[in-house]
Design a protein around this nucleic acid. Sequence first.
RNA 1: GCCCCGGUGGUGUAGGCCGGUCAAUCAUGCAGGCCUCUCGAGCCUGCGACGCGGGUUCAAAUCCCGCCCGGGGCACCA
Length: 466
Amino acid sequence: MVTRFAPNPNGPLHIGHVRAALLSHEYARMYGGKFILRFEDTNPANAVLEMYDLIRRDLRWLGIEWDEEHMQSDRLEIYYRYAEGLISSGKAYVCTCDAPSFRRLRDRGEPCPCRELPADEQIGRWRGMLGGEFGEEKAVVRIKTDLRHPNPAVRDWPALRVVTSPHPRVGERYRVWPLYNFSVAIDDHEMGVTHVIRGKEHLVNEMRQRTLFEHLGWTPPEALQYGRLTMAGAMLSKTQTIRGVREGKFLGYDDPRLATIAALRRRGFSPEAVRQVILDLGLTPVDAALSWETLYAYNRRLIDAKANRYFFVASPVELLVRGVPSIEEVRLRLHPSYPERGERVLPLLREGDVLTAYLAGEDASHLEVGTIFRLKDLMNVELRSKGPPLEGDFRGLELMDVPKLQWVSAGGVEVEVLMPDASLVRGLAEPAVAGLGIGEVVQFERFGFVRVDSLRPRIAVVYGHR
RNA sequence: GCCCCGGUGGUGUAGGCCGGUCAAUCAUGCAGGCCUCUCGAGCCUGCGACGCGGGUUCAAAUCCCGCCCGGGGCACCA
């Protein structure tokens, strides 16, 4: 079994694209076959150099390794050889009709004037295409098919065309470029691909490709298709993503508003969670609606055990507590279920019997004078005045059945959180957070899982989910 | 308009090819409980589906027909 993933390096991979990659890779591994990565960069006008590496990085991150890598922009001579063979054997022809008039004839099932020209004249035209005689849109190589094929889209489909813009990898070396169906069919055969997994929007393409396989006497690979993937609240359009990034509407390809692999990585998702979600969608032609909730659930299950816990208060509000006994610090487990991981220290800011601490603005706004709450793992406090600052009285150290609120006292560090809607939330975190490394995923208790994005000039984390 | 694909609980999925063992699987979600010094995790219980109508058959989620609904394609993009 040989499978392949064939991305167009014109934009970043998102959760929809990697479905083909994960399924193809998974099947190849399951049956001890080969998995190929092939860049389909036959449109010089939209291939982007930096995307090759980004795509490789995204795939590796997902745990996908490929046994072979190809770039179609290195294979032009191969396509030319087949094109010439097809033309000289009368299975393809060079068409110089303009697109609308060809389409009119095609829709009626009639041949265009170019179709019946003799082979030597066709070859002459073909050489002319290669030699620069034809400008863009002046000539195209078409594969002959049954002109009465029920689907007009299949009739005499285009295989190669003239493109004069330079290619980011091979420059201006070529001016005739294959179109999708042509290069795919040739490559799938040449590379020995046995199973093709793709979205069902390719159903018509498969029909077109099959006509080429017939001309060449080849057996087409098994084709399996999956349905459309939609994700509420996620923009899954590559063109819009590219445009948005170019116009500065997004922070980059890893903007947390996007469902790109880069964005998921930045938000601290486990690649295994992405893998499982996608593989659980299976290989069915049914359209699927994935939700962020589902992705969060899969991820939470995987990272909950790994992520250490820290206190963080968003939009901090000062609290003064009177009558506090002389405690200097609190030591808490890094993870409640794994004492062996050790502890972190939360120092207290005290002057006499007055403790200064900070609560999350949201928590503070829900407190009423006279209510008792607990600074989690520390002490109970009865609110005496809403201030500002908030003022309260010490009400004992013993555990009480009252709301437990996270807090920060001495040595709090400022943290900036990039939220999924790209807004920024600022707050204070306990001092130990300053010692985290970039890339670490931790839980800010009762706030959510975050991934450390940068440490300078300030500590910045990216929000994953609750 | 033309060509094609599909419709199982809120969501995803198993089953459909080879009709019975499907009063329908698993996960997520939601509700409740236990546990927990997090509104997180874990554990337990519960809720909830074969698009509609005909046909074939002793028997249909599964096969056939019609309808309805959803999606895709009809580029000298991939």
